[in-house]
Design a protein around this nucleic acid. Structure first.
Ligand SMILES: [Mn+2]
Ligand SMILES: [Mn+2]
Ligand SMILES: [Mn+2]
Ligand SMILES: [Mn+2]
Lengths: 220, 220
DNA sequence: TTTTAATTTTAGTCTTGTCTAAATTTATTT
DNA sequence: AAATAAATTTAGACAAGACTAAAATTAAAA
């Protein structure tokens, strides 16, 4: 079995791998909130266990083995989040920190039975795709809101980062999953957008628009 | 917040306190499966945090603060066991090890909501009383089967230790919680008992009889 | 292409929790 | 009461993970 720490490193490497193949020491240090020197120590240990490939000064890459561990943690995290929201009545902004702990419970049986109990959800409360036991992620045709041209309509499909503050902000603006919206304006000055939402017109910053994932409406 | 380790030490001290006031280093070492020297180191740290009283060579005692931590862990452990059996369909012999992990999830909210979801159970699947938020244990009029005289009838109320093997053994003999039984014979030679159970007549050892808790029938 | 700056690694420590072996204290026998 | 045995504590080490400060490497500027 792997330690919680190893699991957190692998998960962070997986997450940062989305931005490009090799993950740098400093990016990992930022993500995990530790010093770069600590990361260097730790990636050596992970490489010794063949969970990542590590070349001095060149950053790290997950091996197939490491990727599977990471994706399994994400699977657990997201299934637990569904449980917390659907069964225990937590709000979508309240569950991430608890799931950060629950994702490290070691029992395949437990997560399989929980998955049954929840009727095999494909997405978590933030629109995050839930991998299956083999590590396959369901596809979703979602793109960042910031990629939409002015005038287009869309439906909220998820958020990139389940940051508590962002989630509370979106909830307060009625921008929950499934909410309809339209892009009214685009200010080139700061790349902010003006949106029409169920609860009125709102201006959102570029950063928010980058983190809000949407899909085309009507299609299905 | 306390570490998982501290929590496990406090829980073990609480458990062993039932046999008498002061808990010895060696008893703790046996219970936690570590060396006595490790226990000595650890109890010094717990005493420094005022979770226990420790006097060299005299064993340890929980403080009120330490007792509350211990009882809270037991509360979580047992509520999770109810969840695993009642909602996820695990057998009573399968849940202890998973609950050993789940009991260390830190979130008062989580356990309160789970308690709601389960309709505030008073006992876990092994008959273990579930403490309330203030650490009060529900009373139960249960005694070890070994205390019963020959001829008496009783109802299974729980087990002292949720040891997997014992639980599977009892399940196989139909001695689940609520099962009716009668003491047919007592062999003074080895203190074993012969029982009449729903599934027939069985002989059980003294050790099993000590660990099987029963309550009088008919009374409510 | 040097010089400077940023990133990354090494070296040396620290904390938590464990271990073994040796020393000390307490309990049990003679 | 002295001798022996059992329980407990100390001393010294070790592994996992973290830190700071300094050295080495790579990247960016001049
Ligand atoms: Mn999350
Ligand atoms: Mn999520
Ligand atoms: Mn248990
Ligand atoms: Mn139990």
């Amino acid at each position: 079995m792997h330690s919680q720490n190893e699991e957190n490193y692998l998960k962070a490497i997986f997450k940062l791998s989305a931005e490009g193949p090799a993950v740098s020491t400093s990016a990992l240090a930022r993500e995990l909130d530790v010093q770069a020197a600590s990361v260097t120590d730790m990636v050596k240990k992970l490489a010794a266990k063949e969970l990542i490939q590590y070349e001095k000064y060149q950053g790290v890459l997950l091996t197939a083995k490491g990727r599977l561990v990471a994706v399994n943690i994400i699977r657990k995290h997201r299934i637990w989040e569904v449980f917390l929201v659907d069964k225990l009545g937590f709000g979508w902004s309240e569950v991430h920190d608890i799931a950060e702990q629950l994702e490290h419970i070691h029992s395949e049986q437990l997560i399989d039975r929980l998955d049954d109990f929840l009727d095999h959800p494909s997405f978590d409360p933030h629109g995050g795709p839930i991998p299956d036991r083999e590590g396959r992620l369901p596809q979703r045709q979602a793109e960042p809101l910031s990629a939409l041209p002015v005038g287009s309509k869309a439906i909220v499909a998820g958020v990139k980062d389940d940051d508590r503050e962002l989630l509370e902000y979106l909830e307060q603006k009625g921008l929950l999953i499934g909410a309809r919206l339209r892009v009214l304006e685009h200010l080139t000055f700061d790349d902010s957008l003006v949106l029409e939402t169920p609860s009125g017109k709102w201006s959102v910053s570029r950063k928010v628009a980058d983190n809000l994932l949407v899909r085309p409406p009507a299609v299905e």
